[in-house]
Design a protein around this nucleic acid. Structure first.
Lengths: 127, 127
DNA sequence: AGAGTATATACGTGTCAAGGTATATTTTAA
DNA sequence: TTAAAATATACCTTGACACGTATATACTCT
C-alpha cells in the first residue's frame, strides 16, 4: 500500500531553491515550460516535476497553448507565508522594538530571576 | 571525509513544523528549553536539536541562566523571508491586481499569440 | 562529595524527496 | 501518416534529515 503525502506545507514547497526560482520568474509574467527551462538552465524534467508540485500546492496554474503549457502565478499560498510572518514583524518594523524586547527579557517566563531576588532555588530534589 | 552542509537556506530551516512552532513560541517572550519542551509537548532532545539548528542559522540566541539556557528570537533571518516575499505582494495587496495580471497574460512571453495573429508557426523542424 | 536537574550530543535507523535518464503523450507541420 | 517539438511521467539511486534512545556535560543544592 502506497503512502500519500499530500500534507506538504507551503513552507516545504518553497524550501526548494529551484521552485523559488520558478516562482520568482513568474512574477514578471507567465512563462512556458521551455522558457523556464532556458532561463533557469535546468533540465526539462526537473522543471516539469517542480511545476507539478507547485501546481498541486496551488502556487501556479496552467493553460494550454498548442503543445505548450503556460504557467502563471497563484498568490494564495504565498499569502499564507506572509500571514505566518506577521507576528514576527514587530521585531523589525517598529521603533519601540529595542525597548520592547528588553522588557520581554525582564518579564515573564523567567521565574528564576524573580526567585533569585531572594534566593536561588531551582533544582528541587525529591524527599 | 565528511561533508559540511552549512548552505542551509533560511527557507529550509522554517520548513520544519517543530521549528516554526518554536519560533512562534518565542514571539511572546524568551523561553528555556524545558518550557518549550513542555508547551510544545516534544521530547527534550528534539527541542535541543532544533534549537541548535535555529541558533546556528541565526534565528535565535541563548543566554545562560544557571543550568538553563534562555532562548530568544533574532529576527534577521525572518526578514530575509519577508524580503523574498516582497515582489509577490503586488499580487494580493493592491487593487489594480486583477487588471495587471490580465495584462501580463496578454503581454510578453507569449510570442505564440502574436504570431498566431497571422499563422500558427511553432514547431520548426530542420531541413 | 553526591544526588538531582537541565541541556546537549552521539549513534543507529527509516523515510522521503530531488536528480538523472529514459520514455510516454500530445500537438503541430510537412 | 510520419517526424519533430513540447511537456509529462516512470523508475532508480542517493543523500539528507528528523526521530528515538542512550549517554555525556554542566550546574546547584544539601
Amino acid at each position: 500500500m502506497r503512502y500519500i503525502k499530500s500534507v506538504e506545507s507551503v513552507f516545504e514547497i518553497i524550501a526548494e531553491p529551484n521552485r523559488r526560482a520558478i516562482l520568482s520568474l513568474l512574477v514578471s509574467s507567465q512563462q512556458s515550460v521551455g522558457e523556464i527551462e532556458r532561463q533557469l538552465r535546468m533540465p526539462q524534467p526537473t522543471v516539469s516535476k517542480h511545476l507539478r508540485v507547485l501546481r498541486e500546492a496551488g502556487f501556479v496554474e496552467s493553460t494550454v497553448d498548442a503543445q505548450r503549457r503556460l504557467y502563471r502565478l497563484k498568490p494564495e499560498p504565498l499569502q499564507e507565508v506572509d500571514a505566518w510572518l506577521a507576528p514576527f514583524r514587530r521585531f523589525w518594523s517598529a521603533h519601540i522594538d529595542a525597548l520592547e524586547r528588553h522588557l520581554d527579557r525582564m518579564d515573564q517566563s523567567t521565574p528564576a530571576k524573580k526567585k533569585a531576588s531572594q534566593k536561588t532555588t531551582r533544582p528541587k530534589p525529591r524527599p
